[in-house]
Amino acid sequence: MAEISQPESFDALYQRACERKGSEQALKALLGQPKSEKQLRQLGDDRYLAEFSKKVFQSGFVWRVVENKWPAFEELFFGFDIDKILLMPDEMLERKAADPAIIRNYKKVRSIRDNALMIDTIRREHGGVGEFLANWSGEDIIGLWAYLKKHGERLGGNTGPYALRAMGKDTFLLSRDVEAWFRQRKLIDGGLTSKRSLDTIQQVFNQLQQQSGRSLQQLSQIIAFSTGDNHIV
């Protein structure tokens, strides 16, 4: 693949984000930090399934409502214990999907068991989701997104990436502001999630990371804060 010309130096990008947010101190206060590889490995597979499931239910829905109902999800689905969920028959899933304590959507409820199957495969092949994520190179985050879309259920689009971000895996996000930055610089001109666009986006993030030493998460945030509507926080 031909190397992409650097569209903008990290220093210029960072300076503009600082100016738009009022100061470097203000920008720093807005930047998040992904978990370390050690922290990813320490998180149990049940917590990864819980986060995948939460993001599936939040997709196309009011996030606050899902958060408020989440304790009921934890109770109904055995704390997202992988082995217990794998033993759930369809009839039990149907009963739980009808429970008013949670969001009653059978297809999304069924995805909990489907994604438990994916996690079961990962833990048998890699020792656990934490180990799997810790070992996945940040230089191919789009490959990790593709894995989740192919092997998981309802984890395509933004759902998988947002779940990874919530789990602490270092990833960029294709928010509207990030997309706008790429389009303004004519780095992408077709569909945002086409192979060509995703390859270009990954390569640019890799170049910015090599230049700055920053995490993909922070680079994604800095790009977003440097463009689009500006809100001083």
Rank of each mutant, 00 (worst) to 15 (best):
L198T: 12
F182H: 06
D199W: 07
I223R: 01
S197M: 03
I82H: 01
P7W: 08
A29K: 14
Q15A: 14
F78Y: 15
V178K: 03
S194K: 10
K108I: 07
E8M: 12
Y106W: 14
R176A: 14
S111A: 15
Q42M: 09
L173Q: 07
I222N: 02
V233H: 14
E19L: 12
H231A: 13
I188H: 08
R196E: 14
T121L: 11
S59Q: 05
M92G: 09
L40Y: 04
G168V: 08
G156K: 01
F77W: 07
G213Q: 10
H231M: 10
S226F: 09
L192E: 06
W145Y: 15
G168L: 06
L173S: 00
F78D: 14
D114S: 15
W63R: 13
T171I: 07
Q218I: 02
D229C: 03
E179L: 00
P161Q: 02
H231V: 14
P34I: 03
Q58V: 03
E8Y: 00
D114F: 13
E91T: 14
L216H: 13
Q42S: 15
S194H: 08
Y147I: 00
Q207L: 13
S215M: 07
L133N: 00
A72Y: 12
Q58N: 05
Y162E: 10
Q6K: 13
Y162N: 13
W181S: 03
Q202D: 08
V66E: 09
A163V: 05
E131Q: 14
D170V: 00
G143S: 08
L208S: 05
G138R: 09
R47T: 12
F78N: 11
H126N: 12
A72D: 14
W136C: 03
F61S: 05
A17T: 07
A97I: 07
A2F: 11
Y106A: 10
S5P: 13
S220F: 00
G168P: 00
D99N: 15
K149P: 00
N206M: 08
S226N: 03
A163F: 01
E75W: 06
I85M: 04
W145F: 15
S194Y: 09
K186P: 07
K54D: 04
A2Y: 11
I222E: 03
A101H: 13
G213M: 09
R154D: 03
D114G: 10
L86V: 01
I222F: 03
Q217D: 06
R104I: 04
L93T: 07
S197G: 03
I85T: 06
K108S: 06
G130E: 02
G160C: 04
L43H: 07
A72Q: 14
N115K: 09
Y147F: 15
V66T: 11
Q218K: 11
F182N: 06
V62G: 00
R185F: 02
R123C: 05
V204S: 08
S197P: 01
I223M: 09
L117I: 12
Q39C: 00
G213E: 10
F73N: 06
E3M: 11
L173H: 01
N105V: 10
L27S: 00
Y14M: 12
G152H: 05
Q58H: 06
L208E: 04
Y106S: 10
S111Q: 08
A116R: 02
N135A: 15
